[in-house]
């Protein structure tokens, strides 16, 4: 099928190439502009509040005090709960579809997971209010079912598809020879999985975890509806059955109201910057891990 390109085709190819380049550059520029914009907009808050912005426990618009510690703690707690809930289930789902299900039923399993990812966030939030909130409230005898734990559990369901899909890809990418080597040594399926496949896919699974952590941190509406939205640190710190606030729920509740240029607006931009930096860091690390694995193979 080798053939010479005609001049017109060469021109078309060049045009397509520069078009793609321009589109790519535009995408990068947009991303850079977002970071730059949030950085600039949050600068007055950093200058005013200094370390108090991160270490301060009180957020009071009227008094001009903006401490993000309750939100930082809330985000950490909610994300940890989500991760702890999603990891065993997501990993099991990935192992099941990649290793044990017949090839025929894989598309179905994949479809179900992707359907889970396609449900809008607000629907998870409302289902949480209708089902999980009263259930936790009654079951655990809580003052209210809107707690850090509630937000975290629903978030766990929401990151499940990301976790399972990326982990499954990592498992499927393990070369067939590794499994065959295991079988040749007389290992059964479970032993092959544990000793040949999982160690090989370790970096990819870690990447799945990091990417889903990033997703969990950035999720807004569902968490906002379920977490209680109280700017208060859990006391003692391990009591997660109380209402709290996350970075995203704070932004979701206050961003529309803040006047552009007000101290509140700059402080919210600072929260957004913190969120952006952490999520970008997790995503980069996740991608690097999956790339390292790809290169090693």
């Amino acid at each position: 099928m080798l053939q010479w390109l005609r001049p017109a085709e060469i021109r078309a190819e060049k045009a397509a190439k520069s078009l793609l380049l321009a589109a790519g550059a535009l995408g990068l520029a947009a991303a850079a502009a977002v970071v730059f914009f949030i950085g600039v907009e949050s600068w007055p808050a950093w200058r005013e509040q200094g370390a108090g912005l991160i270490l301060g426990g009180e957020w009071s618009v009227g008094e001009g005090r903006f401490g993000a510690l309750p939100m930082l703690a809330g985000s950490a707690v909610v994300t940890s709960v989500a991760f702890a809930a999603a990891l065993p289930i997501g990993l099991s789902a990935a192992i099941l579809t990649a290793e044990f299900l017949p090839a025929r039923s894989r598309p179905l399993a994949r479809f179900l997971l992707e359907a889970l990812a396609g449900v809008p966030s607000v629907v998870y939030g409302l289902m949480g209010i209708a089902v999980l909130v009263p259930w936790l409230q009654r079951g655990l005898g809580l003052l209210t079912g809107r707690t850090l734990l509630t937000g975290g559990l629903v978030l766990g369901v929401m990151i499940l598809p990301t976790l399972a899909a990326v982990a499954e890809d990592a498992l499927r990418a393990v070369a067939r020879e590794k499994r065959e080597a295991g079988w040749a040594l007389g290992l059964n399926r479970i032993e092959t999985l544990l000793h040949c496949v999982l160690p090989e896919a370790r970096a990819g699974i870690a990447a799945a975890g990091l990417l889903s952590l990033g997703r969990a941190l950035g999720e807004t509406i569902a968490v906002m509806l379920l977490v209680g939205s109280l700017d208060r640190l859990p006391n003692p710190w391990y009591d997660w059955l109380v209402p709290g606030q996350t970075l995203t729920s704070k932004l979701g509740r206050e961003a529309v109201e803040a006047a552009v240029g007000s101290p509140q607006y700059h402080a919210l931009a600072a929260l957004a910057l913190i969120l952006l930096v952490v999520v970008a860091g997790l995503t980069l690390l996740g991608q690097r891990l999956s790339r390292v694995e790809g290169a090693a193979r």
């Binding site: 209010i129 909130v133 409230q137 209210t144 809107r146 509806l225 209680g228 939205s229 109280l230 509740r253």
Partner: peptide, 17 residues
């Protein structure tokens, strides 16, 4: 002990308790 936003949200939180 809890912060809500819209009337709907507040109404739901009171009726659930």
């Amino acid at each position: 002990r809890l912060v809500t936003g819209s009337n709907n949200e507040e109404q739901a939180a009171v009726s659930q308790s």
